[in-house]
Structure formats: structure tokens, C-alpha cells
Design a protein around this nucleic acid. Structure first.
Lengths: 344, 344
DNA sequence: GTTGAAAATGTAAGCGCTTACATATCACAA
DNA sequence: TTGTGATATGTAAGCGCTTACATTTTCAAC
């Protein structure tokens, strides 16, 4: 009963057409626009598809239809729970719309990101998700020339005209800084990831400074220590802070992982948190609650951002000229690591 | 100086050929086998490529060359630090070899995994990385028919003949169980992720039971509570254990996240770890060290596994019939959560 | 200068699908 | 039965690249 496939192992559209006694166009319609084919014909075709174990050749389809149904994302690293969480939600939503995720990582290097973006475009990504605004303008020009819809996530700025979904890093951190100062803290240090080529980190630092200026504090008095993402970096940074400014009473960290490192260093140095020094984070990833004391931090809706980013990108793929800028709210999670300034 | 592109916006191979005054075959050779083209011709072509901003059409290339240079991976979730870490290393290594990663997730559902695998194959994945051995044999048959090289990771079993890179989950957990029993524990419970369709979880349970049998203990006496992956699940499971068997003195968790949950529940229940009850984990992810008390667990070289998996798959893509089974070592990380059994 | 072999390049078929336009079929009204 | 409009299906061009085989060029030896 099973007809031998002529000439090769992998069934093609032509094989299905022959078996179902229709043209290849009808087979294509059955698979891609089923409502344009009557029930009887359609069932005959789908039966042939199943019997032959036919699946479309991806390259041929991409070439003919001029799309791949893949969407690329370049993130700093999947090992950062922030991106892992957001990307997971992004991928799930893409999957629901029949798109597949292409992933590359940049290790927080702008040069590597540039390369990876170009590689993803070369791989035929229909659209792209990128993290933050900072990048070489040539890259944006390249993406525009190639007509690859591109969405920026994790940042939001009213001054930018690129499609984006994110939150205002500056405003969020300023709000936390106001709470810190509300607890009486004036000697504040900031531990952050490198701010060069990283608008998210930079904006968080600016947020602290803005809140200080607003409160009549000198923003230049903010001690800033930059370290790569990592718990050990946070430990090192905290030691540097306390060595450089031993009267620091609050250390605001630009992400939770650095803050966890700071907490660990404080404990090892015999510094009590928050009695001696308060420590705050940013992101509200899982370990923020698990820390001892639990971390005061900025909660960011990473999953929602990832999910909605997928929706926006899919919309962009369907229609030209969607210029969405979506701001998501953040909120402060007050926990035990922030307390009143220690009496002098 | 810049010649207008005839007819369309996006330069094609033909445009480059015309500009460089060579055939399209020569352009293709310059890009793909540069050593087969003399220097002068090659430079002329590469200049034309640059001037035109040409990049190959992915679908055309995939169709003609019968490969996409993408490799797919279906993992349970990127939010599990275990997979995030391994996948990150996998992706980095693929990138070094000019391959791009296609990612899908299965939420620990076998049915969803099946669908996602087929979707990745439909997207033209040249090869596949899958997690664990357990899956519908039809899926393996499908992959074989489509000639998609497939590598299993996170599991290793000498009885399986599929290409795989992983560790012996059973032996690793048995080793930890022997240490637990070496501390005098006889009333042992096991908290695990669901074992149906999850050989890794199942083997870890079997490992405890094997060690018990070996020590003359009744393996059926092992209290087993299955819960989905998650900290809260671990909390709930621990409560169930202590309700069902209040004289339990050791709880062995099949992953660190469940163990963290168990630690939290113990604290809330006024149970001291390890004085009253010892708790162990599996995986040695970052929070194992951060926990209070720090978790005794099985260390698994996730990054190395991911990196080497990429190497193996690339090898499989280059050569037919590579049948590698690589076992990676695990080792026990003794920390404060495991102590001697409480005197009766 | 001639010859032969190796290297370099060109020609053209083909990869497998989609889809614009052409043609055939169907359903219904007169 | 005929005519018309709507629906269903077929024809064939084309998407842009790779590569087997053909042809041309280069180079060394005589």
C-alpha cells in the first residue's frame, strides 16, 4: 500500500501532490491557507502528508515566502536570572504564535553583540529583540536597511523613538534612593555593573544622583564602584567601598547579584546589615528573598516584559511601521536589608 | 561611484558578481571556499560585497546547501539555573563554530517537548540537543528518518546506545545517600520532581534506594514526595514529609531548588537543620552556597557538559555515525545542611 | 614555442517551495 | 439549458544560492 518515494528519502511537496492527485499549489494551500481548499481535497492531501511523513523544507519555504518564522534575541547571558526569566516568557509567547527563538549571547560586550546581531540576521531572523538602547548606530542602520523589525527591551526612555518595551531605570532607582535617604542615609555608595555601553546600569546610577540632587545632596558625592556581574564582584566591590569610605551607611547596588555579594562581604567583615550599613538591590530575582537579611530591591516584571515583547514583535512582523513604546511599572520591595541610618 | 542596485533593495549574489565582473559561482567560492580563488579576484569580490552591503539569503543558502548551520535545543525551562548555565555554555561553543542556537522549551511536558522538537526540525535545525533519555520512541524514529543528529544530555547510562553526554544520576545520588547513611540516618525521605517522563529524577530516586538496599535497609521504606520544580513546592513537600513521617531525620532532595524550599519550611516549622533534620540537594547551583545553612549537594559540571555537547554535535554534523557516549564525573559538595543523626 | 597538468573560473541545472495569474468547476438564477 | 459570478484548483515563473561538470587560464618542463 505504501508507495515508494521516487528517487530520494525525504518526501517533498511534489510527492504529496502526486499521491493526493492534486497540484503542488493545492498542497501548499492546504498547509498554509486551509480555508481556501474544500474539505474533501484537504483531507486527501493531509492524509498523504501523514502517510508520507512529509514536512516542508525549511530553506525552500524561507526562500519562496521570504520569511523564516524565527525571531532572534541577543542577550548578555542566560546565566543572569533576569534575562533567563524574560527570555523564557518571550520564547513561550513566540511558540504560541508559531515562531521559533534564535538565541545568541554577548557577554555584555558591545562588539560581540554587534557580531551576534549580524549573525542572527544572516541566519534569516525575521525580527530581533535586543537589550537596552546602547549600541553602535551603524548596527541600527544595518537593521533598518535589512528591514528587520527590532524591539528594545529592559529600557524605556521617552526621548527615544525606537520601538521598545521596558521600564524607566532612572526613575525606578531614584524612587528607591529617596526611600534610602528617607531612612536618613546621606553617605551612600553605589555598586554597579560597568556603565559603558550599558544604558540600563548607567540610568540606575543617574537615578540615585538625581534623587540626591533633588534632596539637596551633592550627586558627585556618590561613591561609584563598577564591577562585572557576579556575586564575587559584589563582595569585592563592597570591600572597596568600605575601604574608600568607611562612613558609608547605605550601599545601593544596581542589581541583586551584586547586592548578594555585598551582603556576604558585609557579614565576613563583621558589618551588620541593616544596623551598620543598609544594602539594596535591583531586579527582585529569586535570591533577593532568600538572602539573609532579605533584600530590599526594585521589582521588575521580567516575565510580563518578555511575554509582551513577543506580542509586539509579532505585530511588527505583520504590519509595517509599528512604533510602540511601552513603559512597564516597577515597584519597590521593602525587605530587611534597608533600615534607618545608624546613630552617629 | 556607488552603482544603483538594479530592481530591488537587497543586493543578491548576482549583483555582487556583476559588480566584480565574475560569475556567481566565483562569488560563492570566495565566501565559502576562499582558498579556491586567487587573491586578486577574491579581493575584488570582497570589495564588491562590502560596497553593496551584501549578505547571503539564508533560505536560498539552506535550500541549496541542504543545511542551515543552526542547532536546536529543547529544554524544560530556561528559568532553571541548571539548564540556563548549560545552555549558555552550549550556545557560546556553537557560536565559536559559526552555528546558531534555536531554543524551545517544554515545561517538563513530554507532549510539548515532542511538538517543540518537530517545530525545530521544521525550522531546519541541522542537529538537536535534548535533555534526558525519556521520550516517545516515535520521536526518535522521526529524528532518524529526518536524519537529524541528536544528542542527549544530562543523563548517562551505559545501557543506552544513543549519543549522549551526561552523568550517572543514579550513581551520583547513591553516593550522597551513602554519606547520609554514614551519618547514621535511617529514616530518610526523598523530595523529587515528578519522575514520570523524567529519567533524571527517577534515577536519582533509584540511587537512594540502591544505596539503602546495599546497606541492608529496605528501599521501599523510602518516603517519596513528588512536586513540580520550585521553591514553594519544596516547602510544601517538606511539610508533607514531616506530617507523614515525623521521625524522618534526613530529607534528600533531587534538586537544589526543592531543597531550598525544604530548608525554608523547616525554619518556619521550628526544625533545626542539620541538628533535627538534615537536608541535601542535587546540582550545586549558585543558591546552594547562599542558603542558610549552606546546602550539601551533588556538584554537576553543567557548563562543561554544555560546552562539550556543542563539540560533539558539531562533530556529528560533520561526520556520519558518530556514536559518542560521554560520562562526566560528579562530586559531592559537603556543606552545613548535612550532619549526624539526632540522638534518639 | 609546444605540451600537459593543475588551478581558476564559468555555465547551467537544480534545490523545494510559494503564489500571481489562468483555467476549470460549481452553484444558482433566469 | 444557459449565463454569470464565486470558488477551487492548476500552471509555471521565480525566489537566491550551491555545485558538478565544462571550459579557460596559468605555469612548468622540454
Amino acid at each position: 500500500m505504501t508507495q515508494p518515494i521516487e528517487g530520494n528519502n525525504v518526501p517533498t511537496l511534489a510527492d504529496v501532490a502526486k499521491r493526493a492527485n492534486v497540484s503542488t499549489a493545492t498542497v501548499s494551500r492546504c498547509l498554509n491557507s486551509p480555508d481556501r481548499v474544500v474539505g474533501e481535497t484537504r483531507e486527501r492531501v493531509l492524509r498523504a502528508v501523514q502517510e508520507l511523513g512529509y514536512a516542508p523544507n525549511f530553506g525552500a519555504r524561507a526562500l519562496a515566502a521570504k520569511q523564516t518564522n524565527t525571531v532572534g534575541a541577543v542577550i548578555p547571558t542566560m546565566e543572569n536570572a533576569v534575562f533567563a526569566r524574560g527570555l523564557q516568557a518571550f520564547q513561550e509567547e513566540l511558540g504560541r504564535h508559531g515562531k521559533t527563538l534564535l538565541v545568541a549571547s554577548s557577554a555584555y560586550s558591545q562588539k560581540l553583540e554587534d557580531e551576534q546581531v549580524r549573525a542572527l540576521v544572516a541566519r534569516g531572523a525575521d525580527g530581533l529583540l535586543l537589550i537596552g538602547y546602547d549600541r553602535n548606530p551603524d548596527l541600527y542602520a544595518f537593521l533598518k536597511k535589512r528591514k528587520v523589525p527590532t524591539l528594545v527591551a529592559w529600557s524605556f526612555s521617552a526621548g527615544q523613538d525606537r520601538p521598545a518595551i521596558g521600564f524607566d531605570n532612572r526613575a525606578a532607582m531614584a524612587e528607591l534612593a529617596r526611600l534610602v535617604m528617607g531612612q536618613g542615609h546621606r553617605n551612600i555608595a553605589c555598586i554597579t555593573a560597568p556603565t559603558e555601553f550599558n544604558d540600563r546600569a548607567r540610568e540606575r546610577v543617574f537615578g540615585i544622583q538625581a534623587a540626591m540632587a533633588e534632596a539637596g545632596q551633592d550627586p558627585d558625592a556618590l561613591l561609584i564602584v563598577e564591577k562585572p556581574y557576579g556575586i564575587e564582584s559584589g563582595e569585592t566591590a563592597f570591600r572597596e567601598v568600605m575601604a574608600a569610605a568607611p562612613n558609608t551607611t547605605a550601599v545601593m547596588c544596581a542589581n541583586d547579584v551584586l547586592a548578594i555579594g555585598a551582603l556576604r562581604a558585609a557579614r565576613e567583615m563583621g558589618i551588620t546589615v541593616p544596623k551598620d550599613v543598609s544594602i539594596t538591590g535591583f531586579d527582585d530575582i529569586e535570591i533577593a528573598m532568600l538572602a539573609e537579611p532579605a533584600l530590599t530591591t526594585v521589582h521588575v516584571p521580567h516575565r510580563e516584559m518578555g511575554r509582551r515583547a513577543a506580542g509586539i514583535l509579532i505585530q511588527m512582523l505583520r504590519e509595517e511601521d509599528t512604533r510602540q513604546c511601552v513603559e512597564l511599572p516597577t515597584d519597590i520591595r521593602l525587605r530587611q536589608s534597608l533600615g534607618p541610618v545608624k546613630a552617629a
